[in-house]
Amino acid sequence: MNDNSGHHWSFDYNYGAQNPQFAQELIGTLREYYAETTACDTRIGQTFTHVYNILPNYWRGYGGGANEELSIGTAIIERNKDNGFWNYSVHYENTTSGENLRMQFRCSAKHYRSLTDSWRIDARNSGDDKYAELRCEGYLVEDSEVRLRINGNEILAGTVDASAKLTCNWALFDVIPALAQTIRESDDGVDLVLLEDLEQLRPKSRLGFLESIQTPFPLDGYYLYGAGLLPSYWWLDTHGDIVIASTFFETLVLKEKIGENA
């Protein structure tokens, strides 16, 4: 625990005068989420959606000014099951970078949510610069070569062992709940290959169990760690939802869930 706000160090970014609303915003978002999910039936068709509030871990100019909201955007993870696969559509909007990402990919229905043959990223910049948009399509060739095609130009993003468990960081919101028991029972965690934001290959990544906490809610903590990655911390609630995902620079806090994980 931190002497500052009393919350776990992995998501305590009150950070003096620079980021004084962080804990209040984080806990407020979660309280509202729990109040609303228990109050109504949120099941809608076959689509299952998580909506996260993005909080900057460090105020220093990354969020707005003193009079602006702390939140710097929204991440929406939408998926539906179709023919034995999960189709994902992720919308990540960041008002600091000005870049909005739409990522679409398909995964196997197994616990590791392995990426299948192809995926797509549509990036848009809302800033006042020459870069306006970019489309990137990704391919898995012969289960080992990760290739990206950008405006007709194809590059090799890396190679993976055909037997490796290749998944995307945005699928971890489902992988961690599915593998929670396995991770907890493993001394060394579970290995996987991550394709971060569907572009950056992180071949030696690992999920491990951190600890359980009771405050502010009963949560189990997991970490993601690996080559080229700063550790990130993922907190799973008793309903099987990742409610806090804190990477090095930002913290995603669950604010809405639509549908139920089948």
Binding site: G61, Y62, G64, S97, G98, D128, D129, F249
Partner: peptide, 18 residues
């Protein structure tokens, strides 16, 4: 590209990929 909030001292996690 120079960020929606102009890039200051830090913030690689927000800006470098863009």
């Amino acid at each position: 590209y120079y960020g929606q909030r102009n890039i200051g001292a830090g913030g690689a996690a927000y800006y470098d990929s863009a």
